Amino acid sequence: GPIITTQVTIPKDLAGSIIGKGGQRIKQIRHESGASIKIDEPLEGSEDRIITITGTQDQIQNAQYLLQNSVKQY
């Protein structure tokens, strides 16, 4: 399918649970989903961080599912 980009906003407090120790968790999510995932640095004074996910519809759905699971375990 076509490559698309979607953005998800997360509270910055949850960023740690998604990134994992030394970036292990986010690497695993990238690997498992096949999507490209970029977590922006939090904006000055903002409570949120923006996650940019790029890939096919399937890859993005996979990545979103894995991201949600990471947050739930936290």
Rank of each mutant, 00 (worst) to 15 (best):
G34S: 05
N62C: 13
V71Y: 03
G45E: 14
T9K: 14
V8M: 14
G55L: 00
I18E: 06
S36F: 07
I39T: 10
I51E: 01
K21A: 09
R30E: 14
K21P: 07
Q28Y: 01
A15D: 06
R49Y: 14
T52K: 12
I19T: 12
T5V: 02
S46Y: 12
A35I: 01
G55D: 00
A63T: 04
S33W: 01
K38C: 12
Q73T: 06
I18F: 08
N62H: 15
N69K: 07
G1D: 13
T6W: 00
K72M: 08
Y74N: 11
G16P: 14
E47Y: 07
I19E: 04
G23M: 12
R25K: 10
Y65S: 14
E41S: 07
Y74A: 15
I53F: 09
G45C: 03
I53D: 00
K27N: 12
I50N: 10
I60R: 02
L66P: 01
Q59D: 02
N69L: 07
G45L: 07
G23L: 12
S33L: 02
I3A: 14
E41Q: 10
I19P: 11
I3D: 11
Q59R: 08
N69I: 14
S17T: 05
G22Q: 13
T54G: 08
L66R: 08
I53R: 00
E41F: 06
Q24F: 11
I19W: 13
Q7D: 02
L67E: 01
D58Y: 07
D48C: 07
T9Y: 01
T52Y: 07
T6K: 15
R49I: 02
T6S: 06
Q57D: 08
K38Y: 05
K38L: 09
G23K: 11
H31D: 15
V8P: 00
R49P: 12
E32A: 05
Q57A: 09
S46F: 06
I39V: 11
Q24T: 10
L14I: 10
R30K: 06
Q59F: 00
N62E: 15
E47A: 08
Q59G: 03
Q64W: 01
I26L: 14
S17I: 07
I37W: 01
S36P: 00
R25I: 14
K21Y: 12
S17H: 11
Q59Y: 00
G45P: 09
Q28P: 03
P11E: 12
V8R: 04
Q61Y: 10
I51W: 05
E47F: 05
E41W: 03
N69A: 12
I3G: 05
S17F: 12
A35L: 00
P11Y: 02
L14W: 04
S70L: 14
Q68H: 04
I10A: 09
E32G: 12
G22W: 11
E41I: 08
K38Q: 06
Q59P: 00
E41K: 10
A35D: 00
A15F: 09
I53W: 00
T56M: 06
I37N: 00
I53K: 00
R49L: 13
Q73I: 02
I51T: 07
G1V: 04
G45V: 07
G22F: 11
Q73A: 07
P2W: 04
A15S: 05
I19G: 05
T5A: 03
V71Q: 12
Q61F: 04
S46T: 07
I18R: 03
D58R: 04
T6Q: 12
G34L: 04
G16E: 13
I26V: 05
L43S: 11
D13H: 14
K27I: 11
